[in-house]
Design a protein around this nucleic acid. Sequence first.
DNA 1: CGTTTGGTTGAAATGTGTCAAACTTTGTGG
DNA 2: CCACAAAGTTTGACACATTTCAACCAAACG
Lengths: 215, 215
Amino acid sequence: MQLSDIRPDQEIVREGDRPSRCFALLEGFACTSKVTDEGKRQIVAFHVPGDMPDVQSLHLDVLDFTIGTLTPCTIGFIQHEVLRDLCARFPRITGALWRDTLISGAIFREWVMNVGQRQAYGRMAHLLCEWIVRMRAAGLAEEHACELPITQSELADATGITTVHVNRTLMELRRDRLIELKGSKLRALDWEGLKQAAGFDPTYLHFRNPAAAAA
Amino acid sequence: MQLSDIRPDQEIVREGDRPSRCFALLEGFACTSKVTDEGKRQIVAFHVPGDMPDVQSLHLDVLDFTIGTLTPCTIGFIQHEVLRDLCARFPRITGALWRDTLISGAIFREWVMNVGQRQAYGRMAHLLCEWIVRMRAAGLAEEHACELPITQSELADATGITTVHVNRTLMELRRDRLIELKGSKLRALDWEGLKQAAGFDPTYLHFRNPAAAAA
DNA sequence: CGTTTGGTTGAAATGTGTCAAACTTTGTGG
DNA sequence: CCACAAAGTTTGACACATTTCAACCAAACG
């Protein structure tokens, strides 16, 4: 596995690439995004340490998305041949990776619903719920507080609302005492309230450990 | 494979189910949807004959979506054990199914972008472009015309806009001579124009046959 | 032939976008 | 360690896309 350190706001792989390797995000945060013909960016996924965001390149030759860093990241590249060999020899690995891509798919579906059916307030709340739960699953949150290394402009690209309106929405969530935001530190002041505002049900994350889903 | 005929507007599998089998859509049209806590429905995918919409149940035990018929359908159920056995004995099948789920994932991402970044007009145009191209790939379209067995209310649930506004948007697409709609018959009068209005680029569908993507 | 389902249209209400400016924090080089 | 620049956040006023509500129309169907 070839290690590499990458600065913030750098692209790791680009739409149109035909990679000959996958990578694992070992440290730092990244996101997958797509751009419309008119140049508007949609972030379709956030990535936390432990994720392998481009496993699909194993089976689909041309990338339909771009993955970029949000913070300084260290990533490990694995050649496709190596991974394919591992899969062939240990079917459990195939299963685990496949399962992983299926969960990503489930999250995309939830995002379609989030962006399609909820208005700004609930949409933002939902994004924050998912973030907190995933951060906790990655061991990067204490109770309902964690880092949120995402600018409001990036939150806008992820939720499909304007930067300005993201700000207003976050203010509203704070006014309602659902969250607290200090610098890049996020805390859910009222986790139950936040979940409710979001209509958040973590089933779609398909956690194996039910405890993680419960909280 | 156990065959079954299903009437329109019936649910085939439901959110929360723990299926012991997958199914293939042999005839007819169906869609995958999710519902918010407030009861708003988001259609996250349409299915055409040949699709296997719930392969994920092979690896994730509880379903996070509902699949329902749009028209009369005939479907074939395949027990998980059978499918798992096939995968174990013929790794190409594993690869093909995995690949298939990855393409579904790619389509979900495109939908996130469509719903998040485009306004009604382009969003609708994009949905129609995808439909026509997929119908053609399924051998169910002649040039740029095909069935569209989807009500405006379903189009609304798929695009995240109101039924009323779907109607206005379709009228506008007709007024601009991009499409023609007669009953459930859709025709792209100006395919290039429609693609442009949609910002449609079929790369994300990952067709193997470049010809399909080209047109 | 009445009933249901789906499509069409208008007017008013509203959530979000746009534009523009000020403010605050963060990071960096002197 | 300060000063400054750059990046990110906050706020206000106004514009606009879409929703909402309500009614009517057309086609499909038993």
